[in-house]
Design a protein around this nucleic acid. Sequence first.
RNA 1: GCCCCUAUAGCUCAGUUGGAUAGAGUACUGGCCUCCGAAGCCAGGAGCGCAGGUUCGAAUCCUGCUAGGGGCACCA
Length: 568
Amino acid sequence: MLKKEIEVIINKAVKQWIEEGQLKIKQIPSFLIEAPPPNISGDFSCNVAMIMAKEVKTSPYKVAQKITALIDTVNICSKVEIAGAGFINFFVSSGRLYKELEIICKQGKVYGKENIGKKELVQIEFVSANPTGPLHIGHGRGAAIGDALANILSFTGYKVEKEYYLNDRGKQIEVLGCSVMLQYDKISGQQLDRKEEEYLQEKKSEDMYKGEYIEEIARKIFKDKKYDKIKGREDAGHWFFEKEAIKIIQGWIEQVLKDLGVKFNTWFQESKLYEKKGRQTQIDKVITLLKKKGYLYDKDEAVWFASSKLGDEKDRVVIRKNNEPTYLASDIAYHYNKFIQRKFKKVINIWGADHHGYVARLKGVITALGCNPQDLQVILYQLVSLYRGGKQIAMSTRKGEFVTLSEVINEVGADVCRFFFLMRGANSSLDFDLEIAKKQSPENPVYYIQYAHARICSIFKEAKKRKYSFRKNNIHLESLKEPEEMELIKRLAFYPDIIELCTRKLEPHHLVIYLQDLAKKFHSYYNKFRILSNDTVLSQARLELVKGVKIIINNGLSLLGVGVPEKM
RNA sequence: GCCCCUAUAGCUCAGUUGGAUAGAGUACUGGCCUCCGAAGCCAGGAGCGCAGGUUCGAAUCCUGCUAGGGGCACCA
């Protein structure tokens, strides 16, 4: 990485200064190396002089002068300048840039791979939507972010596991079973057992899930005649309808995620936490543990978790009056499982922003379990609004009126879908316009990048057709002299920095923006210069350049999980 | 009422750990294919919600205000 190389020579210069005995500081302060703004010439810019100026008690400019004099630029820079208040600007030599292009072409798929994670075991839990209905567009955003992040972190040396937490029990599930049962009763012509009828009567006052899919599930159960076989038995009743409904809905969810190109390593069922292992369940186990640690107390016939002592607004119930554990109890057991039993070093949970109130509570849980709450990172993504031609589409999950993720994928395609989900930072709310997403035109940024790749593939086809007689191992990159060419190589060389940025901040969207910029520079270059010409040596060098672009676009889009077509 | 997020060009958004003259896309207008893919390129305007503060330097940090979204369960 060029940036790292420059960091090394700066450190070396400052160290030398210290060793000369004139500089009396304990350690070299952390400084910044970045690309200067476009109006400034130079490839990298360093603020070390400005940061040190205070401590050294001279002007930044003088500090910069001293450092610049000591810098050994051989092999990397052609020039080092002081600019502005005391920035040190580095000009990377063309020789070093040619070398970088060589590295890109040689390393191909692994270019930019740096072992940031050092094989640390990381879990990313995402989507985790309740299996009470089909996924909607918001879940898609979580899916795309989680999956892209998993790809990126794997690339940067983490051992990543992707997990879907399936809330297959609890009140919502009961309501689901009930809703299906009610529909089943209608469809079958009151064929339910008396026991079940009574249960329905009892629950009728509660809010039921609405929407066509409930009917669809009921119809499927009726068609399969599964209920008839067990009617009247102990294991029938609402349990049966719950189980069947979950099975069917989970099937839908898995299918949509597959269509979107998302695959999980593990589907973790909440109900597993309630299975007895020996004498007690996982829930019992953690409750006992927290009780022993003094984090639980009894009040109003319920058991409370003293989360307010751990950063939460107030204390929370973990065991209800009726002796039923709450969702939080499940989550305590679940995160005990993640951190203690499965030994994940870092756990990343990706949630919709509507769950933000839950973060403090869960961090409190992690602390209570004796783990470091910083090892749990929660990424909150803002909500997605669906538009069609500039008009917002109203959705209501409760009424069962919503556009499903599956419908969106069918309409615009998985690549576009993923790209749209990833092109904004998670903290920005996302307007997803179906009309724009569907357009196969420049308005749609997905095609813009894919087009660059396809174009390059087509150039290589053309080169083959023209039967250039290239000499292998004798490429003269020095013939790349145009400023646009040097600029392109610089952009390519910046790819590893972008990957590092995405990893450090857990934000895939930087990669999207980078790829758009790279594609732009390529298209512009392509329009101004001819890759293939009578000058064989130049043509070969330029082919090498666009090959580099092709590699980076391929690598980048692959990490995002977006397809990379050779022709369109 | 309390908490979180957001406010940057007409619109949708970038902006790296506080750095230099704040960038794209889109829309609008005009130009560019005898030539490797015109799903492309080139040229043209305007902006950091408001008021203070911190400092060599603020879109970025702090305080107050305004507007929008979300959250404040013995639901998940």
